[in-house]
C-alpha cells in the first residue's frame, strides 16, 4: 500500500527517471553509431586523398600538419552534424507523442561529446596518413 507521496513518486520521478535513462541510452547509442559513420567517411575521404598525402610527405610536410588537416576535417563534419541535428530536433520536437524538453546545458554537453567523438573518429584517417609512403607520389 503506497502513501500519496509514494504514489506521486512512482508516477512522476520513476517514470521521468526511466524516460531520462532511455533517452540517455538512445543518445549514447546514436553517438556511437555517428562516431562509426564519421570514422568510415573520414577513412574513405583519406583513402581518396592518399596520392595528395604522399605528395605532401614527399615534399617534406610534417605528419603533424597533415594530421591536423584530417582532424580539422573530422571536427568540421562532427560540428555540422551537431548543428543540423540540433536544428532538426528543435523543428520537430513538438510533434513527439511524449513531451520532450530540450535544455541548453544538455546541448552543450552533447556538443562536447560530439567533439570528443569526432577526434576519436579521425583516428583511422590519422593512422592511414602516418603509414602513407612518400615514394608512392612518384612513378605513376
Amino acid at each position: 500500500m503506497y502513501t500519496k507521496e509514494q504514489q506521486r513518486a512512482v508516477l512522476t520521478e520513476y517514470v521521468v527517471e526511466k524516460a531520462s535513462k532511455q533517452i540517455g541510452m538512445f543518445t549514447a547509442i546514436l553517438v556511437i553509431v555517428a562516431t562509426i559513420i564519421i570514422s568510415l567517411i573520414i577513412y574513405t575521404m583519406t583513402l581518396e586523398k592518399m596520392k595528395e598525402i604522399s605528395i605532401m610527405k614527399l615534399m617534406g610536410i610534417p605528419n603533424s600538419m597533415i594530421v591536423r588537416m584530417i582532424v580539422e576535417e573530422t571536427l568540421l563534419l562532427g560540428i555540422l552534424a551537431f548543428l543540423f541535428g540540433n536544428l532538426f530536433s528543435h523543428l520537430i520536437y513538438s510533434r513527439f507523442p511524449k513531451r520532450v524538453v530540450l535544455e541548453i546545458p544538455d546541448a552543450w554537453m552533447l556538443f562536447a561529446v560530439v567533439v570528443v567523438a569526432s577526434i576519436a573518429a579521425s583516428f583511422v584517417g590519422v593512422k592511414k596518413v602516418i603509414s602513407a609512403d612518400p615514394a608512392a607520389a612518384i612513378g605513376g
Binding site: K51, E52, I55, A137
Partner: peptide, 20 residues
C-alpha cells in the same frame, strides 16, 4: 630526411598534383 626535402629540394611531378 623530411626536413632536408623541405628545405633543399623541390619536386615536380608528371601531373601537377596540386592539393585540390
Amino acid at each position: 630526411t623530411r626536413k632536408i626535402r623541405r628545405e633543399k629540394i623541390g619536386f615536380i611531378f608528371q601531373a601537377h598534383y596540386l592539393i585540390p
